[in-house]
Write a protein that binds this DNA or RNA. Structure first.
Length: 425
RNA sequence: GGUGGGUUACUCAAGUGGCCAACGAGGGCGGACUGUAAAUCCGCCGGCUAACGCCUUCGAUGGUUCGAAUCCAUCACCCACCA
């Protein structure tokens, strides 16, 4: 199976500037490709795994991957996919974000691979020194406003009520310039990205053709949606981040464990490096015995290992076992402590335990499980609250030192799977 | 510029003087069932309170009234038709 056939099978090809010609080029020998990641936040999230993993797949096929941090493009903001102008990030925020993202980008790829090591780049390195006048003369001259205005990302904003600033309008020129620069400096012939990047990518291939008379390709993967059509990677608690301080490996693991059956096959293909045979075998096993949820476990295991490593996976699984594997009976203090920190954990003043004014609703609010005491009361009355995995149905339930696990912890749970740990201090 | 219509809780949307913390739907959260699913059924969804109840909400401000989301005035924004 060629790399393109594999991507096709995995459902990772949404669009290509010229699939046949690209296929021919890839068969001829290794090439160099890039994928950009803008530092809009201090961490990437699961959605960004698509780009990183696709780079990795190309690397495994012998090509040279260039992960790119958008230190320059992040200063301007991509107008695509948004309905309103974005606020510019401060230079400090941006610098912080870039350094965070660079760290994450260096995890999934092999920077030591003999022959085709990955190289981490930052487009600020070649964009910052450019002068405005040179840019207008050398790059801007090649762009037709008529064409730019016709791009989806721009058109939707012009038709929308918020419009579009000159700054964001210029974004695609910067990205096109990146591709052009990489073509020259690194022989980069292919840019990959989400399908929302199509306009920006083709702006680059056009620029390369006009300025260099050379060919370059663009390849996009489809944006993932959930079974219910909502945005992938967002949960009630917010996005699923790659940064373990923002999304614990336990929650990360749980996110994939909870994958909707309909999406299983697609996620296994898109988010794991498992070979086709392994994935098809998992799907067959899932068909035969859906209740065993082997495919869910394999998916969660693979992705968690890729992003957080073996050790974190082990902790996440152990925590999951405690949470969902039955009661707390027989759980040792050492094992329980693995849960602490994986699950949202808050500290609490131990001297207040047993005080007459300390009620369960108060702890629920303190732990963040309930938004207000009134709601906490309703949650308790509805039978959805558990203290140390025992249903607590009395609103007036007092919490005392006798409830502490291992003399220090309270395990609160709302519903089937939302846990919080309170640590008495 | 003229005339008419609208602005209600997370969203859509009822409500035109007291029975309204406000119908209904979607969505969310819980419960039962299950596989930590889906579908289905049930409960809850402004705040505070153990509870009686109290407090704050219906675009904004002021007014009429014993009493207003509901009536009046002014302002803001949106929509429709006419110019």
């Amino acid at each position: 199976m060629t790399i393109l056939e594999e991507l096709q099978w995995r459902g990772l090809i949404a669009d290509c500037t010229d699939l046949d010609a690209l296929g021919a080029r890839l068969r001829a020998g290794p090439t160099t490709l890039y994928c950009g990641f803008d530092p809009t936040g201090d961490s990437l999230h699961v959605g960004h795994l698509m780009g990183q993993l696709t780079l990795r797949r190309f690397q495994l096929a012998g090509h040279h991957p260039l992960p790119l941090a958008g230190g320059a493009t992040g200063m301007v903001g991509d107008p695509g996919g948004k309905s309103a102008e974005r606020n510019l990030l401060s230079r400090e925020e941006l610098a912080h974000n870039v350094s965070c993202i660079k760290q994450q980008l260096s995890r999934l790829l092999d920077f030591e691979a003999p022959g085709n090591p990955a190289r981490l780049l930052d487009n600020a390195d070649w964009t910052a020194p450019l002068t405005y006048l040179d840019f207008l003369r050398d790059i801007g001259k090649h762009f037709s406003i008529n064409v730019m205005v016709a791009k989806d990302s721009v058109r939707s904003r012009l038709e929308g009520e918020h419009g579009l600033s000159y700054t964001e309008f210029s974004y695609m020129l910067l990205q096109a310039h990146d591709f052009y620069h990489l073509r020259q400096a690194h022989g980069c012939e292919l840019q990959i990205g989400g399908s929302d990047q199509w306009g920006n990518i083709t702006a680059g291939t056009d620029l390369i053709r006009k300025k260099l008379g050379a060919t370059a390709w663009g390849l996009t993967f489809p944006l993932i949606t959930k079974a219910d059509g909502t945005k992938f990677g967002k949960t009630e608690g917010g996005a699923i981040w790659l940064d373990p301080r923002k999304t614990s490996p336990y929650r990360f693991y749980q996110f994939f464990i909870n994958t909707d059956d309909q999406m299983l096959g697609g996620y296994l293909r898109k988010f794991t490096l498992l070979p086709r045979e392994a994935i098809e075998a998992l799907e067959a096993r899932h068909q035969a015995d859906p209740g065993a949820r082997e495919a869910h476990k394999a998916l969660a295991r693979e992705v968690t290992t890729l992003v957080h490593g073996e050790a974190a996976l082990a902790d996440a699984r152990r925590a999951s076992e405690i949470m969902f594997g039955g009661g707390l009976d027989g759980v040792s203090e050492a094992v329980f402590k693995d849960v602490v920190g994986e699950v949202p954990t808050v500290d609490f003043d131990a001297s207040r335990l047993g005080a007459p004014d300390l009620s369960l609703p108060e702890l629920l609010v303190h732990s963040g499980l309930s938004p207000s005491k009134g709601q906490a009361r309703k949650d308790i009355e509805g039978g959805g609250i558990y203290l140390n995995n025992v249903r607590a149905s009395e609103v007036g339930r007092r919490v005392t030192a006798a409830d502490l696990l291992f003399g220090q912890y309270l395990l609160l749970r709302k519903g089937k799977r939302t846990y919080a740990v309170i640590r008495a201090r």
